[in-house]
């Protein structure tokens, strides 16, 4: 695809807020719930436009998941909003029993995921949520990479029947995917084609991987970058197609190595086509306070880390 980088940056959470507002008009059955973070989740516009379909639940996330399950039982399409930490770990059993096992059409929308939450520190910087959510049967897991894609993913989830987890973040981030096309749940997105190595990235790391690919090109390395915005169900065909050409793999994500995108890709490779692989991810540690940029550098998920991983994996490539 042709990458056009927008002159302005925006946070992915605003893409969610915009998508939700549009769903309010197009889908009368869409309702929204928030646990005292309406501003942070950018749900204010929906609340103002559709107050009767907005449910403020207070600081009570377990109840929010159950209320959402009840609304879904009655035929509504609930979108819950809170930080990723409180959207998953805090309410895992509620999601497991009342939503996933019960097959409720609830969209769990989670902001401030990962290290790029920044200064709030490790209590809020969840890096395990993708793993928790992808382990649940019936659960779809979507991690869009920029504002445009988060908006499109939000719109798409209203049309997708079943439990889903939508993960996005806080920082202002480059906008480089199309505003109105190119997103389909479960369909990997080619960002840059290449022949030497495939970088599978998700969320904020898609941009970092694209930057890394440009640096690698200057060194004469032709990297393919593929955006795995849907962690589950994984586009196995796209993964195998790409690696059949490049024969080595790097994964990149703002998540623990355990349980993240890298795990999912490694499983596909191990079962189908074992190949050299490197993972760019947080390696079994909690985060800390700092700016998003500082944290990405310290915890090894920056552009330079993707470049270094590619160099390493190419040395292992036969």
């Amino acid at each position: 695809m042709e990458i056009t980088v927008s002159p302005e940056k925006k946070d992915t959470r605003s893409g969610f807020g915009q998508g939700l507002l549009e769903l309010g008009a197009s889908h009368p059955d869409v309702v929204a719930l928030c646990a005292d973070l309406t501003g942070s989740l950018k749900m204010n516009a929906f609340e103002k436009a559709y107050p009767e379909r907005f449910f403020q639940v207070g600081i009570a996330e377990a109840n929010m998941m159950g209320v959402a399950a009840g609304l879904a039982t009655a035929g509504k399409i609930p979108f819950t909003g809170t930080f990723a930490n409180f959207s998953t770990g805090r309410v895992y059993d509620q999601i497991r029993q009342s939503i996933a096992y019960s097959e409720k059409n609830v969209k769990i929308c989670a902001s401030h995921a990962g290290l790029t939450l920044g200064e709030d520190g490790a209590t809020h910087q969840i890096l395990e949520d993708i793993g928790m959510m992808k382990m649940l049967p019936n659960m779809t897991v979507v991690v869009p990479c920029d504002y445009n894609q988060t908006r499109l993913a939000t719109l798409a989830l209203a049309e997708h029947h079943g439990p889903a987890y939508l993960r996005f973040g806080r920082p202002s981030w480059p906008i480089f995917t199309p505003a109105e096309s190119g997103f389909q749940i479960g369909k990997a997105q080619l960002i840059k084609s290449g022949k030497d190595v495939t970088i599978f990235a998700t969320g904020h790391l898609v941009w970092k991987s694209y930057e890394a690919a440009k640096e690698l090109a200057a060194q004469g390395i032709d990297a393919e970058v593929i955006n795995i915005h849907t962690i589950k169900p994984l586009d196995i065909e796209a993964v195998l197609d790409s690696v059949s050409k490049t024969r080595c793999v790097v994964t990149a994500e703002e998540h623990q190595r355990n349980g993240g995108l890298g795990d999912s890709i490694a499983q596909v490779l191990a079962l189908n086509s074992p190949l050299p692989m490197q993972m760019v991810a947080v390696n079994d540690s909690f985060g800390e306070s700092g700016t998003p940029a500082q944290l990405m550098t310290k915890y090894g998920i920056d552009t330079a880390d993707v470049v270094a991983a590619v160099v390493r994996v190419l040395k292992r490539k036969k």
Partner: peptide, 22 residues
């Protein structure tokens, strides 16, 4: 809805009650 892990039914009832009111 599934139940067994305790404490979850009243929340689901609240959601159904909200939908009925809507």
């Amino acid at each position: 809805i599934a139940s067994g892990s305790l404490g979850q039914g009243l929340s689901a009832a609240c959601g159904m009650a909200e939908a009925k009111r809507l």
